[in-house]
Each structure stands twice: as C-alpha cells, then as structure tokens.
Design a binder for these strands. Structure first.
Length: 511
RNA sequence: GCCCCCGUCGUCUAACGGUUAGGACACCAGACUUUCAAUCUGACAGCGAGAGUUCGACUCUCUCCGGGGGUACCA
C-alpha cells in the first residue's frame, strides 16, 4: 500500500485493475430515476478517472416489464447529463449487440455448456411444490428452493417430461462459504448453505438476469462491477456462476465488485420509482441543470475533500475513487440539491444561462423562438439586460420565467398577484401619483437606473416622507405585478418610459 | 426463521489512535438592501449503547440495540 500514489489508503480494499472496464446496465422499466443516475455517474467517473472503458448495455430480458419508451428515455437521460460511453448501444463496440434482447443465441449456447458440464441442472419443481415440501419438512415457507431436482436420474427426468413438464435450469451452488472483497464495504462473507440453487433459464427457454448479467460481463471483459446495494445479496450466486464460466473458458477473471449505498427517500424507505423526487425528468422540468444535479448526486456517498461540496465534473473525475465511497445509505435532500444547483447556475456564463433558460421561457409561452438567434431584437435586448439581474436570483431555471415575464410582456397593465396586492397599503395611490409626476418629464435619454433611483428617492422618500418600503412597493407591483421582482430601477430602465408610466397609471386606476 | 449490509448534528459529509469532533444544506437571529435572492456575522445541533484493546478511542475488537435489504421461473 505504501507505494500507492493515491492520497488515501484504502485499507483492505483491492487495487483497481490496470485496464479498467466498467459498465452501466439498466433495465428499461419506467422513467429514469436518480438512483439509477447516481449508479451511472459513479461508473462513468471511475472510468474517466482511471482512463478506462465505460460500457453501456441494456438488460431487457423481461419482455413483460421492459419498454422501448423507457429505453429511449434512458438514452436521453445520459445524453442530457453528458455521461458519455465508449462501447454500447448506439455507439457499438467489439462485443455487441448491447441489448440483451438481441443476444438470445449467446445465452442459449452458454446455458447449454453449463448444463453439459453439470454446473447447471434441470429442475422440474414448481413454486407450489417447493413451498409444500418446505412446510412439510418443518421449514419456513420462505426457505427457498430445497435442491430437490439436483440429482434426478434420467428416468425421473423422463417421467416429468412425460407429464408434459418443461425444466427450468438451476445453478448448482457449492456447499462452502463464499467471500469477496467489496470495493466499498471491504470483506464480505456469505455462509455456506445460505444461497439456494437458483434459476438461470425459465422452462420456456427465456434466460434470466441471473445468467445474462454475468455472461455479458464476462464476454465484455468487465473487470469492475459497480452497482446498487440491492444486488449485494445476489453476489455469491454471481461469483459461483463466474467460476463456472471461467472453467468453461468463457470468463477470464473474476471481476471486482463495489456495491453503492441506497438513495433513500422520505423516512427510512428506499427512494421508490413512484416518488416524484426520484424522477430525473421532473427535476429537469423544474430547472435543474446537469452540473447541479450531478454534483448533488455525487455527494450522496462521496466527498471530494474536506469542507468542500461544489465542484465540476472535471474535478470529480480528477479525484474520484470508488473506494472512497461510503457504505451507508443517503437521503435525497431536495433542498440541498436545489442549493447546489443554484451555485452552478450562478457560475454559468450569462449567454449560456440565457440559452439554457430559453426552453423554459418557451414552455411558459414568454417567447416563441427555439433558438436565441431567432428571438426578436427586442427580446434579445431585454433578456441580455435582465440576465445579470436574474441569474443570481434563481435556483432553478424554471424560476426564470417568473422573473422576466413582466419585462418581456408588452401589456400596459399587469394584474397584481394576490400576495402582491396584499402588500399595497392605503398610501399606494398617492405614492403612484407622486412617482408618475416625478418621472413624467424624464427624457428617454435620461431614463437610466441611477437617475430613476435618484428621482424616485427624492420625490417619494425625501419629499414625500414615505419609508422606502412604502415608497417603492407600489412601483414594483405596478411594473411587475409581483411582490418579488428583479431589482426595481434596473427593471424600469429595461421596461422604458412609456410602459413604466402606463403600468403605474393603470395600477392607480385599479387600486 | 435464515443470510447480508448499515449506524458522526434534522439531512449530506470530514476525521483514517491524540482536534474545543470541521464544513455544507435546512432552521433561527442580526447586518446590508427598494422586494426577493445573493453576500457577510452569529446561534442551534452529532459520534446508537455497553464492554474490551491502548498512555489515549468517532477511529481497532466483541456484544447488544436500532434501521435496511435479500430469501423469485424481477432486476
């Protein structure tokens, strides 16, 4: 360990392989969720940090649950987030195809070899029969498969077939402890006999995840498996199958495993797919940017260093090591996620900020163009002027519309929102009269932030005797219709003289 | 039942045998300010419990307690 150049020492955790190959292999069921993204992110970050290979494979062996729509969404998610892959669906590679639904022949062939070698065997027991046997033997119903078909004779198998039964294929588990060194958790040991023989091929010939996942990892020469904690207890099965695959010459070496902690939702429950906070695209709709969301997700189990939590993906790649990831589950805290996102929004170049805000402005029907260059001159002018005022004030891009709507609007009257109207005191009418009088003969050339500030302060505060709060509140409501707006005098300048005066006059009318 | 994982402020984390246990988010108070936000100050708040090892344990060991997952012809 002493010669390692890493800044941390990693206790008993294994060293990472030289030519690291990791993979991300979701099943396309449902809309992408943040736990899945976190798994993709850590795989990607380790691959990039180690200058290894990131393989993207789709595990769509369950026709009942998988959907093409979900597949497309996962693709879109990775692209949006900027998590690029070196081999896999769409980009291809030496070990394709990369959708398991297109690899049936491979699995059939391997299953055949496993069966011929005696590593797998035919099992004719139904779930009901297994349960009945367990109960009859005084074992709990949840005991699992009892090994009944392990050593069936040819005659017995024939008898089952004569009944019209078709066998599932089960892997023969050895009667010994199975241990491995997890990259995140260290040494883990499963007691002998705690894992029953398990099914790898259904009676109808469909291969299951238990077969396809290790087989593809072997064929694609994956040497580091980083996946969710939910797969931890299936690792011994996987290790045993891998041993068999190595004996058959299908796998070269046992991969290293690292099991990422759960991402938890409210309470002590794993973040479920039904939980809106788990929905990646919902976060995007609200206005998370990839930098912000990824940064937050990275914090769930990993830290770039002491006293630091805002960083770029480049920085993450530079420092990431899976062995530094904590093993305990982390709660998804939307408040902190939003705060981190706000930091990243502030770091955007102003024009970048505007370009990224455009889809949201368009969604909210404030503009109609899809691209910046297709905006009108007026729209470009207003948005460019507003950007520095708005950018530090929003935490999500979805909030931009509310901030610039009144500036973009050509309306001469904006009906105050309820909370804004509530702010208007009895003095509002007089205040607006004074304000209109003070600004009425300002020339267009002099219609500038500082000058407007001076004039209104003088007329309303110094001479009118109103407290700033009472003085500027009605002006704000008149021009924005809202209680919260970008800075007032800057807004007046952007709005221009005629719109400003008309809005003030019209609010005066509608008090 | 059996197997496995996890346990530092409310939340995410730092600490890798020696610190007044640090930071961030949230919350509270104050400053600044035309509102909100940002920014700045400050406050609140934690090692699940008990043994053991040690001169010295958040850190190593064990037990207990608590939480979670698995025990599928899902992944």
């Amino acid at each position: 360990m002493g010669v390692m150049t890493d800044e941390h020492d990693h206790d008993a955790k294994p060293d990472l392989p030289k030519d690291l190959r990791v993979r991300f292999c979701p099943s396309p069921t449902g809309t992408p969720h943040v736990g899945m993204v976190r798994t993709a992110l850590f795989n990607w970050a380790q691959a990039r940090h180690s200058h290894g290979t990131f393989v993207f494979r789709i595990e769509d062996t369950d026709a009942q649950r998988d959907s093409e729509e979900s597949y497309q969404q996962i693709l879109e998610a990775l692209k949006w987030l900027g998590l690029d892959w070196d081999e896999g669906v769409e980009v291809g590679g030496p070990d394709g195809p990369y959708r398991q639904s297109e690899r049936g022949d491979i699995y059939r062939d391997v299953a055949r070899q496993l069966l011929d070698a005696g590593y797998a065997y035919e099992s004719y027991s139904t779930a009901e029969e297994i349960k009945e046997r367990n109960l009859a033997a005084g074992r709990p119903a949840a005991f699992g498969y009892d090994g009944y078909d392990r050593d069936l004779s040819n005659e017995q198998r024939q008898a089952f077939r004569d009944q019209g039964r078709r066998p599932a294929l089960r892997i023969r588990m050895p009667d010994e402890d199975i241990a491995f060194d997890d990259l995140i958790r260290g040494h883990i040991e499963f007691k002998a006999g705690s894992v029953p023989d398990y099914v790898i091929v259904r009676p109808n010939g469909d291969p299951l995840y238990t077969l396809t996942n290790p087989v593809d990892d072997a064929l694609m020469r994956i040497n580091v498996v980083l996946r969710g904690e939910d797969l931890l207890s299936s690792t011994p099965r996987q290790i045993v199958l891998y041993r068999y695959l190595m004996k058959l010459g299908i796998a070269r070496a046992m991969p290293l495993f690292g099991h990422l902690p759960y991402v938890m939702g409210q309470g002590k429950k794993k973040l479920s797919k039904r939980d809106p906070e788990s929905n990646l695209f919902l976060h995007r709709e609200h206005g998370f940017i990839p930098e912000g969301l990824l940064n937050y997700l990275a914090l769930l189990g990993w830290s770039i260093g002491p006293d630091r939590d805002v960083f770029s993906m480049d920085e993450m790649v530079e420092h990431f090591d899976i062995r530094d990831v904590k093993a305990n589950p982390a709660h998804f805290d939307i408040d902190k996620a939003v705060a981190i996102n706000a930091e990243h929004i502030r770091m955007l170049e102003p024009q970048d900020f505007l370009n990224r805000s455009l889809p949201y402005l368009r969604r909210d029907r404030l503009v109609s163009a899809e691209r910046w260059q297709d905006l009108s001159d007026r729209e470009q002018r207003i948005l460019t002027a507003a950007a520095p005022l708005v950018q530090p004030r929003v935490r999500l891009l979805g909030e931009v519309s509310g901030m610039v709507g009144s500036l973009l609007s050509k309306e001469d009257y904006l009906e105050p929102q309820p909370d804004a109207r509530k702010q208007l005191k009895d003095s509002a009418g007089q205040v607006l009269d004074l304000a209109i009088a003070a600004l009425d003969d300002v020339s267009d050339q002099d219609w500038k932030t500082d000058h407007l500030h001076d004039l209104l302060t003088q007329a309303l505060v110094d001479e009118g005797g109103y407290k700033p709060r009472l003085a500027f509140g009605p002006v704000r409501v008149a021009v924005s219709g809202r209680r919260v707006s970008p800075p007032l005098f800057e807004s007046l300048e952007i709005l221009g003289k005629s719109t400003t005066l008309r809005r003030m006059a019209n609010l005066r009318q509608n008090l």
